[in-house]
Design a protein around this nucleic acid. Structure first.
Ligand SMILES: [Mn+2]
Ligand SMILES: [Mn+2]
Ligand SMILES: [Zn+2]
Ligand SMILES: [Zn+2]
Lengths: 127, 127
DNA sequence: TTAATTATTGCGACTCTATTGCAATAATAC
DNA sequence: GTATTATTGCAATAGAGTCGCAATAATTAA
């Protein structure tokens, strides 16, 4: 299944590039101002994840957020063992840069890592 | 708001005790075999979390799982900085015991920790 | 440049998880 | 036992995400 370039895809991609945080579906829907359909956004983001262009974060609010793979794209072993921070006040979700490693019990095989810490971000803390 | 003891509450609590893993709502609904209403289970679990009897895990499948606070209940600083493992095959979610600490960027305040690693558990790996 | 192929889109319907309003029930305190 | 009010059951609702399908348009080959 070969991927095609479409205005919608480009729009979602550049919205993710412009934001320096992870974005949720509804935030993207907002940003794209109705120029792209809901379901299409979902499908584009899922494709980005399949293709390793973005990664999905399931936050503790039960919603999915998406961030471009920047620092990690050049590695052959594409892993996302980093935490994300979600501000409970401004609701921004951002990647924390430090990679973490967890040692699992014997016999366990890790496939996905999903770490989210929620709290107050710097900007919101100094209010 | 003072808490009361009810058969439903007891049933949910002992179901959680019996299981040595975290349980999802539907798993509990199953276990309780229709003796407790869906909404009631949700409410009981939310109360358990408020009261520090259980903790909530938002897994990467978007569902909530609940586990009793065992090792952590005796600490005054009730924290849950441990990962959870969800098996993609048998769908069991369990607490990993090692506590982790993440250092956040300056000015960030952590309030909740939610770490989930999904993959294949020991039992399912050796098939 | 045109025609054929098929990935992608838009729309609506749908699934699934979780919450909420409200009247009825029952645990606790007096 | 009576009064108080936390809890329950039920139905309705909200919200996130997916899916089927016909229409559209990006790509490829002629
Ligand atoms: Mn990445
Ligand atoms: Mn605990
Ligand atoms: Zn903030
Ligand atoms: Zn398993």
């Amino acid at each position: 299944m070969k991927r095609r370039n479409t205005p919608s895809k480009t729009a979602v991609l550049s919205a993710l590039e412009r934001a320096n945080t992870a974005l949720s579906h509804d935030k993207l829907l907002d940003t794209l101002a109705g120029s792209v359909d809901r379901a299409t956004i979902y499908r584009i983001l899922n494709r980005f994840c399949e293709d390793g262009i973005a990664h999905r974060i399931v936050a503790d609010d039960g919603k999915q957020y998406f961030a471009l793979c920047e620092d990690c794209s050049h590695q052959e072993e594409h892993s996302h063992n980093h935490f994300h921070f979600r501000c409970l006040q401004c609701d921004r979700v951002e990647c924390l840069t430090t990679e973490v490693s967890v040692n699992l019990p014997k016999g366990y095989l890790a496939e996905n890592f999903n770490g989210v810490i929620s709290g107050k971000c710097r900007a919101c803390g100094s209010l």
